[in-house]
Amino acid sequence: NITNLCPFDEVFNATRFASVYAWNRKRISNCVADYSVLYNLAPFFTFKCYGVSPTKLNDLCFTNVYADSFVIRGDEVRQIAPGQTGNIADYNYKLPDDFTGCVIAWNSNKLDSKVSGNYNYLYRLFRKSNLKPFERDISTEIYQAGNKPCNGVAGFNCYFPLRSYSFRPTYGVGHQPYRVVVLSFELLHAPATVCGPKKST
């Protein structure tokens, strides 16, 4: 009989979030998941669920729940959905087409922007091929755009693959930082360890 609440607040209220290319994953298990708490945590810009209804979450049980978190800019949030393409979905964080879970995003301009520009958040701009779903690539190998090998040196047709967002508070919403948490629900042929409040007794 599990009584402890799932530590969603640790994920959502973390002081620092990860850069999207090096997104963070927390496995959540053996706890009571009260998803209604999430609705009250922040004024969400996005709370979209796929393959599951957000209002039914509190009635369900899962084997595992994974919470992935990272920062992107406002106009990239739409890429965090099944079947999307674009720089983020292709080279940084890719959801599977049959994704079961929820994408939660909110504006973090007050936390993640600086007047002089916050350069701490990076994204991958160049990659030889698209990522597979939930693949994480943290390599910093020089990207070869031409025929000549780069031998690890940046220059003509040889690019450092990561680029930094420079978040400034005066930017338009599309270029402001957004914190994203992706909850993916895993149903294996194994005992369910993460249940809503109704199912945990």
Rank of each mutant, 00 (worst) to 15 (best):
N4L: 08
D98Q: 08
P149E: 12
N30V: 02
T63Y: 08
T201D: 14
C61I: 08
V173K: 14
K48A: 07
Y119H: 15
F44M: 14
Y171Q: 15
Q84E: 11
Q176I: 02
K128H: 13
G74A: 08
T193C: 09
C150F: 05
L162E: 05
N151I: 08
D59I: 04
V115C: 08
Q144I: 04
N13S: 06
S129F: 08
T55C: 08
T201G: 14
W106F: 06
R73G: 06
D98A: 08
P96L: 00
L162H: 03
Y171P: 11
P191S: 12
P149H: 10
L111P: 06
F62L: 09
F160E: 15
R127H: 04
L183Y: 00
S36V: 03
C6D: 04
D112P: 02
F99C: 00
F45A: 15
Y93P: 01
N1R: 08
E76D: 08
G146R: 06
Q79R: 02
R127K: 05
S166L: 08
R168G: 11
A105Y: 11
Y39R: 14
E141S: 11
Y178A: 09
A190I: 09
R73D: 06
T170G: 15
T15Y: 04
C150M: 04
V11M: 07
E76R: 01
E141D: 15
N130K: 15
D9K: 11
N120A: 12
V52S: 03
I104S: 00
P191K: 13
A22D: 12
A192T: 12
N157H: 10
A22M: 09
P54E: 13
F44A: 15
D90K: 10
Y121K: 04
D34A: 05
R73P: 06
Y178S: 06
L125R: 15
D97C: 06
A81Q: 07
Y121I: 05
F70Y: 02
A145Y: 10
I138K: 09
S139W: 01
K56A: 11
T55E: 15
N40L: 07
A81H: 02
Q84F: 04
G51Y: 00
S164R: 13
A89F: 01
P149F: 07
I142K: 06
I88L: 03
Y143V: 10
Y50I: 02
V173G: 10
F156Q: 15
T193V: 09
N157G: 14
L38A: 03
L60A: 10
R78C: 11
D34V: 03
R163T: 09
F47N: 02
A33E: 05
Y66P: 02
I142H: 06
G155F: 06
E141H: 10
N1C: 01
R27T: 12
S164N: 15
V194I: 10
V20M: 02
S69E: 03
A14E: 08
L183T: 00
T63M: 08
V181W: 02
Y171F: 13
F185L: 07
S69C: 04
N64R: 10
C49G: 00
V103G: 00
R27G: 05
P133G: 07
N147I: 11
A154V: 13
A18I: 01
N58E: 15
R25I: 01
